[in-house]
Nucleic acid binder design. Structure first.
Lengths: 241, 241
DNA sequence: CGGACAATTGATCTACCTCAAAATTGGTGG
DNA sequence: CCACCAATTTTGAGGTAGATCAATTGTCCG
């Protein structure tokens, strides 16, 4: 079932048009599809994976547990992402990869990816770039955690996720799926569940967003962007509209 | 003056022994050396650099300014680091690179680096890995900012910097240069100067560290490590002792 | 229809911030 | 070598964003 790879191809194509040869090599990648239940771990801290994971359906998150048992989430991932691409060069996982919702993922052996990169070095560059964008997002989150107040942080979070969803065609007007629990948002933004809830109410009261039944709706994109100081530069989505 | 490249060679060699051919290609890299005063910017947010910067002497930091004018520092860099390697694949800078102290840096054109990677793909892999470690450090900082208290965060910061200094031979027993202002530490850890100061006093009182005249001394490495929950896994220094 | 989990609300507490001033330190020119 | 200035560090005294604890109220799903 080589079509399993299409989400990845689409992602790469957003960076640069692919040659037929490149597309061909991609289609040859062996992919093993597996499903995971919500809350299960796909890869765990200290593992030494021999394959990467291409997310086909659902949401994933990457996280670490602190000494006191609290959780810090670093990123959420949606279809087309390869959240543990880093394992290609870093032997041991320094964090875990968990399913936020039920997910379908495709596993691709490191060996195959390495051969792919040898044969199509330009694809290697695009994958590298992808991990660099990852890091850029981390920096933006750091700015938020270190220097912004909870409601603003939350607003920025919505801007980011909405923008990423839009880029892969997962939005419907100003709405999109948003299956993230307030507790998980807290773990991502460095806030308690209670405070996430209160900040959320504030954003709602300001008429910036709606969030119910796992659906996010942006009521006023311009105002939300301004409120959050959102500037998509850091997402480095050069081509996208 | 091809020897300018040695700090980089040493860094790469810490990842894997280099072949003569690889070392040869590296020595051919054209490097333009420049000096900057403390507090000056080497590269600025929104720039589109055409070269990377190899730090030869002094300390650099990467940062971003928030809407209210406050600064968030993401990383400090020491000799041998290539702090803006990402500009090879990300056209525009999403943050700035500034000098914490007077610095000497070598600029290497992107073109040359690209050619280097073509000729010695393995070196490309090592450079990629380096940017991945960068990202891993961001994640660790996020864990600190989101989930740890100030003194612990500070202690972890010291563990990290000391470990990195040691890896490049810049330590003297349990002491090392530490030319970072308390204000800058605050900007890095998401704390106010005052609170950095108070946390610092706490660490001193606990007999964990000393810090005076820009020199950091670790009084009790084991206890500091434990206090900070420092586990060097996230630095991915596979070979180092 | 019941049970589990998520969202919401209320009340209290605290880690860290801000403002302001004093004490140190380091660098510079004379 | 000293005196002076500017930048840091340190200390003090409130103030506040956000945490914690503890119910209560949905909501989803088998």
């Amino acid at each position: 079932m080589p079509q399993t790879i299409t989400p990845l191809i689409r992602k790469l194509e957003r960076e640069a048009p692919l040659s037929d040869a490149e597309r061909q090599v991609l289609l040859l990648l062996p992919v093993t599809v597996r499903e995971f239940r919500a809350d299960s771990d796909i890869v765990h801290e200290r593992d030494t994976p021999s394959q990467c994971c291409l997310l086909l359906q659902g949401w994933l998150h990457r996280y670490k547990i602190a000494g006191d048992g609290s959780r810090q989430i670093f990123a959420f991932h949606i279809a087309g992402d390869v959240p543990d691409l880093q394992s290609l060069h870093l032997r041991r996982m320094d964090h875990s990869l968990g399913a936020s919702t039920p997910v379908k993922v495709g596993f691709i052996p490191h060996d195959s990816i390495r051969r792919l990169i040898e044969r199509a070095p330009r694809l290697g560059g695009i994958l590298w770039k992808d991990t660099l964008i990852d890091a850029s997002i981390f920096r933006q989150w750091m700015l938020g955690m270190g220097r912004k107040q909870a409601p603003q942080r939350l607003a920025h979070f919505f801007c980011e996720l909405y923008t990423k969803m839009q880029a892969v065609g997962l939005t419907d007007g100003f709405s999109c799926d948003f299956p993230i629990t307030q507790g998980a948002m807290g773990d991502a933004l460095g806030l308690s569940t209670v405070h996430v809830n209160r900040s959320l109410m504030e954003l709602r009261a300001d008429g910036l967003i709606e969030l119910e039944k796992k659906t996010l709706t942006i009521c006023n994109w311009e105002r939300l962007k301004q409120y959050a100081e959102f500037d998509r530069l850091y997402l480095h989505m050069d081509l996208a509209a």
